Amino acid sequence: MKYSPVANALKLIGGKWKIMILDSLLSKHMRFGELKRSLNGITSQMLSKQLKDMERDKLLIKKVSKVETLNTEYSLTEFGKSTVPIVKSLIKWGTFNKKKITKVINNDVALSESSFLQERVIDLFHDEIRLKNLQRKKQI
């Protein structure tokens, strides 16, 4: 199997939500509810899954503290912070191309159902890759 830096990086930070989660955590630690509010449209179940995946992949750390109540806070690890140039480049690119991007998005509104299906296929593909990796680890 040929090593592909882009493919491997996308295995860790690809998908609809992970880059946005990284962006939200760039400047501060956040609790689950804060993260959910900052990510317009994400479900609690999807956020929970993404956070677990990112914690497993050493991109973020989950800190549970008990002050008066149980508080769970998420923050980037040093490895997670190494994505800062990627996130900032996307912000810069998105800002520079705002008009073009908005036009494309507005033209694609009618295709939103197919976009959802494409994202679902990609999620299933990522799940299949993870399953194969787990199976390989068990064989070793």
Rank of each mutant, 00 (worst) to 15 (best):
Q50A: 08
L124R: 12
S48M: 11
R56Q: 05
K103E: 15
K88A: 01
L124S: 11
L117W: 09
D57Y: 01
K98H: 12
K99Y: 09
L70V: 13
N97D: 02
L70G: 12
V67A: 10
N71E: 11
S89F: 05
K49H: 08
G80A: 06
K58M: 11
E78D: 09
T95W: 02
K63A: 08
I42V: 05
A110M: 08
T69W: 13
V67P: 14
P85S: 06
E119K: 14
Q118A: 14
T43K: 04
P85E: 03
G41K: 07
I61F: 07
L117F: 13
D53L: 15
Y74T: 05
V84Q: 09
K52V: 10
Q45E: 15
M46Y: 07
E113C: 07
E113R: 07
P85T: 07
S89P: 00
G94V: 01
L60W: 03
T95L: 05
K98D: 10
E73F: 01
S48C: 02
F96T: 11
V84K: 14
Q45T: 14
S75Q: 09
K81A: 01
M54D: 00
T102W: 14
K62Y: 05
N106F: 10
I42Q: 05
S114C: 06
T43L: 03
K81I: 02
Q45L: 09
F96P: 00
L60P: 03
S115W: 10
S82Y: 00
L111D: 13
K103V: 04
K49E: 15
I91W: 09
D123I: 08
I42W: 04
I86Y: 04
I101Y: 08
I91D: 12
K88D: 10
A110N: 12
Y74H: 10
V87W: 05
S65N: 14
L90E: 02
L90I: 03
E78K: 09
V64N: 14
E113L: 05
V104E: 14
K62T: 11
I101N: 00
F125E: 14
Q50I: 01
E78N: 11
N71V: 13
T95E: 11
I105A: 13
K99E: 11
L70P: 06
F125S: 12
S65K: 15
T43F: 02
F79T: 10
L47N: 00
K52R: 14
Q50V: 04
P85C: 05
V109R: 08
Q45M: 08
K99F: 09
Q118E: 02
V109H: 13
K52C: 08
G80Y: 01
S114I: 12
I86S: 02
T72F: 04
R56K: 14
T77P: 01
E68W: 11
K49I: 13
R120I: 03
G80I: 04
K49C: 11
V104F: 13
E55W: 01
L90S: 00
S112L: 03
L111W: 09
L59R: 01
S48F: 04
E68L: 12
D57T: 02
L117M: 06
R56M: 07
V84G: 04
N107T: 06
S115M: 11
M54L: 08
K88Q: 05
W93R: 06
T43S: 13
V64R: 15
K88E: 12
K92W: 03
L51K: 04
V67I: 13
G94P: 02
F96H: 06
K62R: 15
